[in-house]
Write a protein that binds this DNA or RNA. Structure first.
Lengths: 338, 338
DNA sequence: ATTGACAACCAAAACGTTTTGGTAAAAAAT
DNA sequence: ATTTTTTACCAAAACGTTTTGGTTGTCAAT
C-alpha cells in the first residue's frame, strides 16, 4: 500500500493524506481521523526511503563502537550493550533508524565517522569515550550534526550528556555500610586517571566527611590492571596491616574477585567477619562464592535517555539536558551487620 | 556532490555515470575509469535513500535480538556481540545497512519482524535461536525474504547456515588431552535438550570410540543450571567415586568454575593432579585462579560468513552454503601432561 | 552497397514521498 | 455589502537516484 492508492480510497489528494499523517494543522480533525483510520486499516506506513529522500532528513542516529586501545575488551562488557539496547528500544515507537559501526583502530574509526556523515548522512550521533580535545567534536560541529555524549566532559559547554552517577553510587554504598555499623571501610579503586575512578574517589572522601569519619589513606588503594591477582595481593597486605577494616568497596568486579581471594586466604569469613561490595559486573558477580553484593547502574535507561535527548533536540525550545543514572544495590550476602 | 553535478563535470549523462559506477558493461573501460576517478576526487557517493528508492532494493539486513525466555541473559553474553561485530564489519566495504531491534517478549518480537518486513522493507534477515516449527520461517517465506540461520536445524532443507562446530571442538579437546596421555576423561555437559549440548555429547562419545577408549557413563554428567555450585557438588561426587579421572571437560564456563571449586575442595592440584578445560566464556576464564585453559570459537568470523552468504544470495548461481566455525585452544595452565 | 550486430552513450520515466505555492469556500472584520 | 482572514484542501515540483527504451556511429558480414 502506497500513499497514492490510499489517497484514492479516501477520495483525497496525496498532499492531504501526507499532511494529515504528518500532523499538520491545515487538515481538519475530521479528515485527519479518517485518514488515520484508513492508514491503520490498510496497514499503510510511508516508505522510509522515499520519505527520507523527499524530506532531506535521514532520521538516522549514528553510533560507533571502538574496539581498540582501552576499548579492546568492549565486546566482553555487557554494560555496553545494555546501553545500546536502551537506545534501540526507541525504534519500536519512533520513526528512526540506527547506524552502528565497529572500528578496530583509529583509521577505521575516522573512516566510519566519515561514512556516517557523508554517505549515510546521519543527522544525529551518540558519542562516548570522549578524550580531551576530541577530534570528533570538530567534525560534528563542522557538519552541524547533533550529538549527545555518554560521559561528562569539561571540554564541552552546553551539550547534553548522560552518565553514571559515580559519586552517588559511592554515597549509596557508604550509607548502606554505615547503617550496618561499619566504620573502617576500605576502598579498592582503579587508577584515578579514569574519569569514573576519580569521581568514585571523590565520592568516598566526601562520604566519609559527611559521616564524620576520618579519611585514612591506609584504607584506600588503587590497582592498575583488571587482574584479580594484583588486587588480591594488595588487599591482603592492606588487611594484614589493618585488621580493623570490616568492609571493602571494590570499584571493579575484578578487584571484587581479588578481594574474595584475599579474605579467604586470610581466613576471614566473608559476610561475617568482613563485607565486600562491588560495582556492576553482572557476569562475574554470581560466579564467585559467595556471590557478590553489588551496585547496579540502569544502563538501559541511560541509553534510552540519551536518545530522548537527541530526539528532543528537534524541538524549538530545546535546552541542553543531562541525566545521571541512579544506582541500586543488589544484595547477595557478602555484606554483614556489625 | 550529487550525480548531476558530477555528470556535468564529466561531460556525460547522468545515466552513463550511474551505469559506470554500477559496473554495467555498456560503458567503455576508458569512460568508467574516468568516472571512477572523478567520483573519488569529488568524494561522490550515491545518496542511499535515493538509490534505494529508485532501485526498489532496501539493501538492509535485519536482525532481531530476543531478550526474553532462554535469552533473557543475552546481553551478558559477549559471544553474541562478537557475532554482531562480525556481521557489521561488512558495512565498511559493502553498501548495506543493518536494522537491529531488541525484543523483550514474544509480542514485541513479532511486531519487530513486522516492522522489519513491512515498514523497513528489509530484503535479508539473519535468524537465530530457531525453534522447531518456527513461526518466523513462514513469515519470511511468505514475504520472500532471504535469510541465513545461525544454528543448524532439521526443519529446513536447502537453507544456508553458520554454526559452531561443536563436535569438532570436542574432538579437538579430546585430541589435545589424549596427546597428553589422559585416558580417564570426564565430561560435564549441560542438559542435552540444548542442541549444542547434544552435539558435544556426540563428539565426546565418538572421540572416545575413535581413540579406542570405552565410554564410561560414570565419567559423564549433565547439569541443569548455569550455577557453578550445582556443578561443583556433582563434580565433587564424581571425582570422589572415580579418583582415577585425570581430566575434566566443561561445556560451559559456569561448570568450569564449579570444577575448580570441586578440585580445590578435594585437595587436587589443578594443572598437576587434574586438568580442566572449558568452552568459551572470555569474561570468566581469566578471573578464576588458576585461569582456565579453554576452547575459543571465532564468532566474529561466523558473523562475517553469515553476511557473506546473504550477499551471495543475490548472485545467479547461488547454492545454499554452510559454515562451521573452527575452534582453537587457548592454553592457560589448567591442563597437564601425564 | 547493404544489412546486422554491437559498442557506447543518453533522455525521460519511474521510485514514493514531502514541500511549495497556490485556490476556493467559509468565516470574520470592516 | 465588501474586504480580509482563515480554513481546508490540492496540483505540481522536488528529492537524487536507477532503469527503460531508445539512438547513433562503427565495424564486420553479406
Amino acid at each position: 500500500m502506497d500513499i497514492r492508492t490510499l489517497s484514492r480510497k479516501l477520495g483525497l489528494s496525496i498532499t492531504t493524506v501526507s499532511r494529515a499523517l504528518g500532523g499538520y494543522s491545515d487538515v481538519s480533525d475530521k479528515t485527519r481521523t479518517r485518514v488515520e483510520k484508513f492508514a491503520k486499516k490498510y496497514n499503510y506506513s510511508p516508505n522510509p526511503n522515499a520519505s527520507r529522500l523527499a524530506s532531506g532528513k535521514s532520521k538516522t542516529v549514528g553510533f560507533i563502537v571502538p574496539l581498540y586501545g582501552l576499548n579492546s575488551n568492549l565486546l566482553n562488557q555487557s554494560s555496553f550493550f545494555e546501553f545500546i539496547a536502551g537506545m534501540n528500544s526507541k525504534i519500536h515507537s519512533e520513526d528512526i533508524q540506527f547506524f552502528m559501526m565497529f572500528a578496530n583502530n583509529v583509521e577505521e574509526e575516522i573512516k566510519a565517522y566519515e561514512k556516517l556523515i557523508h554517505v549515510q548522512k546521519v543527522d544525529k550521533i551518540i558519542l562516548h569515550n570522549l578524550k580531551t580535545n576530541d577530534y570528533r567534536i570538530k567534525i560534528l560541529k563542522k557538519n552541524k550534526i547533533k550529538f549527545v555524549t555518554w560521559g561528562r566532559t569539561k571540554d564541552l559547554k552546553n551539550n547534553s550528556w548522560v552518565d553514571l552517577d559515580n559519586e552517588g553510587s559511592v554515597n549509596l554504598i557508604m550509607k548502606y555500610l554505615i547503617e550496618r555499623n561499619h566504620k573502617n571501610i576500605g576502598y579498592i579503586n582503579i587508577v584515578e586517571n579514569y574519569n569514573f575512578a576519580f569521581q568514585r574517589q571523590q565520592g568516598y572522601i566526601k562520604s566519609l566527611k559527611k559521616n564524620k569519619i576520618k579519611f585514612n589513606k591506609k584504607y584506600y588503594l588503587t590497582v592498575k590492571t583488571e587482574e584479580p591477582e594484583q588486587s588480591a595481593s594488595l588487599i591482603k597486605k592492606m588487611l594484614k596491616k589493618n585488621p580493623e577494616i570490616t568492609a571493602l568497596i571494590c570499584s571493579t568486579e575484578y578487584s571484587g574477585v581479588g578481594a574474595i581471594k584475599a579474605c579467604k586466604e586470610l581466613g576471614k569469613a566473608i559476610g561475617k567477619d568482613i563485607s565486600i561490595i562491588t560495582f556492576d559486573g553482572p557476569v562475574v558477580e554470581t560466579l564467585t562464592s559467595p556471590a557478590l553484593t553489588a551496585v547496579r547502574h540502569p544502563r538501559k535507561e541511560m541509553g534510552l535517555k540519551a536518545l530522548d535527548m537527541l530526539l528532543d533536540m528537534d524541538k524549538k525550545n530545546y535546552k541542553p539536558q543531562s541525566f545521571l543514572a541512579k544506582p541500586i544495590i543488589i544484595e547477595r550476602g557478602t555484606v554483614h551487620k556489625i
